[in-house]
């Protein structure tokens, strides 16, 4: 009968103490660095709110920009952003969703379609300033739209199109194939199947993706800066061929000013921008959670 004395294998020097220590050290380092991200976000928000909170007021929202900090506001920039984003949405959403439907529902696996797919993936990685160069050359100068809402919106459309397509494709892919099969089995055409069944089922997912893409477009500065929204614009646009300024542009202009008051104005502008983005993202998350609940 063997003894019940525990005898760890002697050929090993497992050094469990040391390894346990290294392990927990490593874990804590990783944990620290993860929580550091939260610290950075906290620092950023505190910094901006403490600098800009006193500038945010009703007057700030309804005044045009001004050389005098205490009279300056971002009415024209805010309206410019609304104009731009609505125009962008009107062009980008139908195009993006239709592209996604084509790639998911209609496209056969051939060279051209594979090329389109690779192309979209690559476009998503092109820096936004390159879209700005394209917009400046093609829309502003070549098509002679000038530094207008239309030129800015078209530029942003090209920029977020890949994002919308990729998100919509994911949503369409998630629609169970059985829905399509049962529609076809009832004698529906592909058009009917797609518009009566697939699209409604994918809609919440598509909307989430679209809102996230639009909120990215709102914050994009470089492309519309390139298109020419740097000018001093006091009036809100009244048509799509009017010149415009936008929230991020106004923030950029204020941030470049040397006077410390403008620093506060920039922070105030950032607060308005962040609140806008936060609202849009909350809506997107709300839609996502609602449909997740409905599906489960």
């Amino acid at each position: 009968m063997s003894t019940s004395q525990a005898t760890p294998p002697s050929e090993f020097n497992s050094a469990l103490e040391r390894r346990r220590f290294t392990s927990s050290l490593f874990k804590n380092c990783c944990a620290f660095l993860s929580w550091l991200c939260i610290g950075i976000l906290g620092f950023l928000l505190v910094h901006i709110f403490s600098a800009g909170w006193e500038w945010v007021s009703f007057d700030f929202l309804k005044n045009p920009p001004s050389r005098m900090p205490h009279k300056a506001g971002l009415f024209s920039a805010f309206m410019g952003t609304i104009w731009i984003i609505v125009t962008t949405a009107c062009i980008a959403i139908p195009m993006g969703v239709c592209s996604a439907l084509y790639l998911e529902e209609y496209a056969r696996k051939n060279r051209l379609n594979t090329f389109i797919e690779i192309n979209i993936a690559n476009l998503a990685g092109v820096p936004s300033i390159v879209y700005g160069i394209l917009g400046l050359t093609l829309f502003v100068r070549f098509l002679k739209f000038g530094p207008s809402v239309l030129a800015g919106a078209l530029t942003l459309t090209l920029l977020i199109l890949p994002v919308i397509i990729i998100a919509s494709r994911e949503a369409i892919k998630a629609v169970p194939p059985s829905i399509r099969l049962s529609a076809y089995a009832l004698g529906a055409t592909q058009f009917q199947t797609v518009f009566h069944h697939v699209l409604p089922a994918a809609l919440p997912g598509i909307m989430t993706g679209v809102i996230l893409a639009l909120s990215r477009a709102i914050g994009e500065t470089a492309p519309i800066l390139m298109v020419g929204a740097v000018a001093y614009v006091r009036k809100a646009p009244s048509g799509i061929l009017d010149g415009f300024t936008a929230l991020p542009i106004q923030i950029y202009n204020w941030a470049r000013e040397a006077k410390p008051e403008f620093e506060g104005l920039a922070a105030g502008g950032i607060i308005v921008l962040l609140v806008l983005l936060f609202t849009m993202n909350s809506i997107a998350i709300l839609i996502r959670n609602k449909t997740q609940k409905a599906q489960s």
């Binding site: 004395q5 294998p9 090993f12 497992s14 346990r20």
Partner: peptide
């Protein structure tokens, strides 16, 4: 296992798995 309580408070799972 032998005299080791596999889920004992001071037992490292690594030690368990070594044996």
């Amino acid at each position: 296992y032998r005299d080791m309580d596999l889920y004992g408070k001071d037992i490292d799972p690594v030690e368990v798995r070594l044996r």
